[in-house]
Each structure stands twice: as C-alpha cells, then as structure tokens.
Nucleic acid binder design. Structure first.
Lengths: 347, 347
DNA sequence: AATTTTCGTACAATCGTTTGTACGCGTATT
DNA sequence: AATACGCGTACAAACGATTGTACGAAAATT
C-alpha cells in the first residue's frame, strides 16, 4: 500500500512549482510569498509529507544529531546527565543518540567510529574506566568534530582542544572526609579506584588533604584500591574485618563500594554508624533506600549535562568568540544521611 | 587544516579508476579484482578515508539504525532491555538510538517523529504510562516502519501488525501472591497502577486469581491504585496505617511503591516481614540493597531485549515466511528475599 | 514613459554513495 | 578462425533535500 514516500518533488509537481520553492516554503523563507507557503503547507498535509532528514543532512553536511557516550545508562548519575543534555540541545533542534560502552574500551572505540560515520555534529563523552589509550578520542578532534568530556577527564586529553565539565572531585572528597572528622572519626579508611582515572586520584587527594588539615596522619594501610563495584565493596568489607584494628569510618569513592561493604559489616554485627561511619560518592538513587541511609556526595548530573550541552552549543555557534573550548568545574554537595551520624542530632 | 573530508572520489582520482569501482572494492564485491581491492584499501588508509553513512543511507533508503523508545533509562529493567537489544542487532550491523519519553506522551510523540524523519529502519518501544492516544504509534506502522512493542502493550495496538514481547504479568502477579499465601498471609493488600496500562491490569488479575484459587475472598478495599512511584508508596504506607485492620502482606505492582511503603512502615515501628510481608515487581537493583531485601518478580529485561531485537530482524528479513509479526510472552521469575519470609527457613 | 528595484520563482549543481547496465578485452569453445 | 563467454571496470542515474544564481514580471523611482 505504501506506494512511495512523498517528497518535496511530489508536492512541487502537484502545485506546478519547483522543488526549490517547496523547500523554501517549508523553511518559511522570506522570499516565498505567503500564498505559496500556504498552498505548500496544505499540499504537504494532504500528501502526508514527511521530511527526510537524511537527505537534508547529506546536503547540509550537518546531521543535527549529537552523540553521547557513557559507560552505562542505569547509573542514576549518567541518566541525569543525559536528561540535562537533552533539555538544552533539544531547544536548538539537536537530537541525542546515546551509546554505552559498558566500560569496555573496545565497545567505546567501535561506538565512536559509528558515531563519526553517522556524521554526528558533536560528541559528549565520559570514557570507560578501563580506557588507557585515547587515540580514538583524538580521532574525534582530528576529524573536526566538537568533543566535550564530562565527569571523567584524562591528562592525555587535556592538550586537545576539548571542552570539559567535571565536578571538583577533590573538593567533594575533602568535604566528605572533613564531615567524618567532624563526627569524631580519626581512623578513616578510604576505598579508592584506579589511579589513572583522574576522578579517583582527585578524590584520594581530597581525602588526604582533609586529614592533613586536621593533623591526622595518613596511614597508607587504610587506603585500598579496587574497581569500586558492589562485589568489590563486599570483598573490602570482609577485608576490613581481618585488620588488627577496625577503622571508625570509611570514605568510599563510590556508592556501590560503600553499600557492598555495609552489607557485609551489618551481617557481621558491626553497627553503622556507631562502630563504623560510612560515606559514599555519587548519590545513586539507592543510597536513600539502604538502611541506614548512606551519606554521599551529589554530583549534579543534570547540571553537568546542561553545562556540557552548552559548551557544545558554544563550540558550534556562529559567534567565533564563544568558541573557546571551556572547562567548567562544578561544586559537589554533601548529602548527609544516617550512615555517618555518630553524634546524634539533638531532637 | 581539515581541508576536506576524503570521499571515494578522491580515492578514485588518485588511482585513476571510477568511484563505482572504489565503492565496490570497499564492499568486497566479487567482480572487482583482488589487486584493485588492495590498491583501494591502501589508498583509503593513506588518505584517511572514512565512509559517510548518511550518503549511503540516502542512496539505499536504509539507515541501519533502529530507535528504541523507553520511559526512562535509569530503570534497571529498561537498561537491561537495551543491553539485550544491542547485543543482538549489533551483530547484524544495526546501531541503536535510544530516546526517552520520561513517561510524557508529548515527548514520546516528538521522539517518534524525529526517529521517523531520521529514517530509522525500525522502532522498538515501551510506551509512556500516561499515553492514552496511540495515533503516533499507528503512524509508525502506517509509514511501513517495523514496530515492536515490549513490556507494555495496549489493546488498541493489538490490531496493528506489530510484534510484541511481554512477560506474563498475570503469571508474575499470581506467583507473587501465591507465595504470600504460602507464607500464611490472608489479608493481602495490592498496590495497583493505572488500569488502562495492561501490565497493571494483568497484575491485578493475577493477584485476584491467586486469591480465588485459595478461596480467599477479594476485598476491594485492599486494592489501591496510584502511579506506583516512590512517593506514592510512601503515601500508601501512611494510608495503610489509618485502616481499621492492617493487612498482613502487600503485593505491589512496582518495587518503588513497595520500598516507599516499607520506609514509612519501618519508621512507624511495623516489622517487615513479621507484621507485614512485602513483595514488589521488577527486580530493580535497589531491591537487594534495602533492608530487609525485597522479594520481587524479575522480568528478564535482557532476554526481553533479545526477543524484541530478534522479532525486528525477522520482520526485515529477506525470508518472507519469517515475517509474521510474532508475539512472545516470557515467564517471570519470583525472587525470594527476606521481606516476604514469615516462616523463617529452618537453618 | 523609461529605468531601476523589488519580489517570487525557476534552474541547476551539489552532498557522497550505490547500483543497473554497457562495454572492451582476453580466454575458452567449437 | 569465428563466436561465445567472463572478467573487470566505466558510465550515469539515482536517493531527497538545499542553495547560489538567474530571470521575468510587477512595483517603485525619476
């Protein structure tokens, strides 16, 4: 039944004008008379015309699509970022295509290739944890496609002309650690992540600096590194129990790690926060569900998405002045819940 | 510096052949000699050629992109579905573009429009809860684009020639309710959702049927309807407490609703599962984190994605026989955790 | 009334690939 | 030796929209 999709040529034929006139009429071009525009619109409706954006993209060399690369979509933080990005760019007529790397560098690479071949107008990315070779990102820049990095940032990319928006991980970690110190904790363990990922390095730095400022010596044995997943958290929970002396608090660079450890510790009769206070990082949605509620650091995902999107729009803007790839640093926010409250709040 | 992107014409010129030869060489066409293929490949490498899939899509009338419409990406279930879909279709050279409706019919509508204009080769969708008018879905079918519905299914779409894959919500609810009955519960409340969404209707039916089979009268006052979000769960938790007699169990059609209620009930000193047993639906990731762990129904998101993707591939397959839009129904699985265990397991 | 402007539309090239058909050449068939 | 066949490549027309330029007619200027 679908004999053929109707094109602007069909409309043109029907009306006895040319396709160029139809095209301009549809774009509300000033040089087309109002009467013609009306006729075109009517006929378009009548013939059930739908624009073919592929054809337009080819001609214009612009797809109006931007690609967003994230490790995984089911993280609250990344989902918020995407929402934020969409909110901004949709207004300017851009569509977002999301592609997940599942934290695999290979998938990340093939995703980037596909995005570039699809002629996306820009790429916003948070790279996979395991990525250590950034050539595929350099390729993006080399092809002249605007690139904005968010959340995770790597030194080897800083030299490129890329925009970036991150939170101040250092500050977040500092706030978290200081909060624990204020609660009276002195033996604070730290669950850290791969040190080539700058966010984990920064968080560790924040942790150490907070201790320094409060004249608490840094004990390397209290700092443990892992992939920070739930399972790793459980393992670390077990490990804690083998130590000569339990820490009185844990600052974990990830909520998953914190919750994993909490599960084990609770099982073993350790009271949280009384025996061990816990603080996580990211404000994942489940942190408010767990018992006790997990104190954590909110990363302002939606806001980060807004900024990243805006940086992209700036880079493709007509106004050359706005085109300096900016770096934006957001302030993280400490969300205090019960898991860290040793001093009970007087009611 | 980016003088110009290199095209197959550039390669052709350099080699003294025509673009068609280059195109065929790149596709490994049998009629092109091996020596030419080699030369082309080398030159492509040398000139840093990257195919422009927009141009190919325009010519072929096929974008190799499929659109997936989901309410929101940060639900464990939907994230799994997407992973499942990607796993299958990537093998056949398709890319997935994800678009979220945030459960808003307007966004859903505009997303569909954009997807169609982008000439996607197919659309897999789980529609927004609030959607009651399905014309935009009919439009998909009318334009001859394969449509597969997953998870949520609406009567008014059944007449269309669409494939669908759902779980047996009825059976899931039945299993959940029966499990509660086996635990000795008799006064089982049900948190239900909008009845025009078939999944909620089915779940309610499963609940009622389980009661019937066990000769427990259905008490309409125990069935409450809401949007099943966390906040609604909290509200329902409050409501429960105002009843003359507390139920001894709750079967909620959503994990969020269940957890929201649990929060309130725990606050008010109600013991779970001893006073009230709880069962949710969906196996969201947080259900294993909450205390006590929430018994729930797993919907096999990844598998659902596999099936949906396969249905799509069948519909676009050369083989006409395979082209009947199939309906697949998956069996849900009961995941038992502590929240429903009144009879303590003897250790 | 002659000339310049303005207005509305047509013409034609273009974006980068794909693909049906034609064609020349060398080898095989009889 | 004449015809037939394969093989490898060229030619040219798509796909559907956009856009710089040209051009005729009407309106405005002098």
């Amino acid at each position: 039944m679908e004999s053929k999709k109707t094109t602007i040529h069909d409309i043109a034929n029907e009306l006895g004008v040319t396709a160029s006139t139809v095209s301009r009429a549809l774009q509300d071009h000033p040089r087309i008379s109002d009467s013609t525009k009306e006729e075109v619109l009517e006929m378009a409706e009548k013939l059930d015309y739908h624009p073919n954006s592929i054809a337009a993209a080819l001609r214009k060399g612009k797809s109006n699509i931007i690609g967003v690369i994230i490790p995984m979509a089911d993280r609250n933080f990344f989902a918020s970022v995407i929402r934020g990005v969409e909110e901004i760019v949709n207004k300017s007529g851009y569509r977002v295509i999301i592609s997940q790397s599942n934290d695999s560098p290979e998938r990340e690479k093939s995703n980037i290739k596909a995005l570039l071949e699809s002629q996306v107008d820009g790429i916003l990315a948070s790279y996979a944890k395991k990525t250590t070779d950034f050539d595929h990102y350099k390729e993006i820049a080399r092809q002249g496609v605007p690139l904005i990095l968010f959340d995770r940032l790597h030194e080897s990319l800083e030299s490129l002309e890329v925009g970036s928006v991150v939170i101040d991980d250092y500050l977040g970690a500092y706030k978290a650690t200081e909060h624990l110190i204020e609660q009276g904790c002195r033996r604070i363990a730290h669950f850290s992540g791969p040190q080539h990922v700058s966010i984990y390095k920064e968080r560790r730095r924040g942790y150490e600096e907070a201790l320094n400022r409060h004249n608490i010596p840094i004990d390397e044995r209290l700092i443990v590194e892992s992939n920070l997943k739930l399972e790793a958290g459980r393992r670390l929970g077990e490990e804690l129990l083998t130590w000569n002396q339990l820490p009185d608090a844990v600052f974990s660079s990830s909520d998953y790690g914190a919750v994993g450890a909490m599960e084990i510790l609770k099982e073993r009769g350790i009271k949280i926060p009384d025996d061990i206070a816990m603080v996580g990082f990211s404000n994942e949605s489940f942190t408010s569900f767990v018992d006790p509620g997990l104190t954590t650091i909110d990363q302002h995902g939606e806001k980060m998405g807004h900024f990243a999107a805006q940086l992209f729009l700036d880079q493709v803007s007509e106004d050359k002045d706005a085109r300096t790839p900016g770096k934006t640093v957001l302030n993280p926010q400490l969300i205090v819940r019960e898991s860290s409250l040793k001093k009970k709040v007087s009611a």
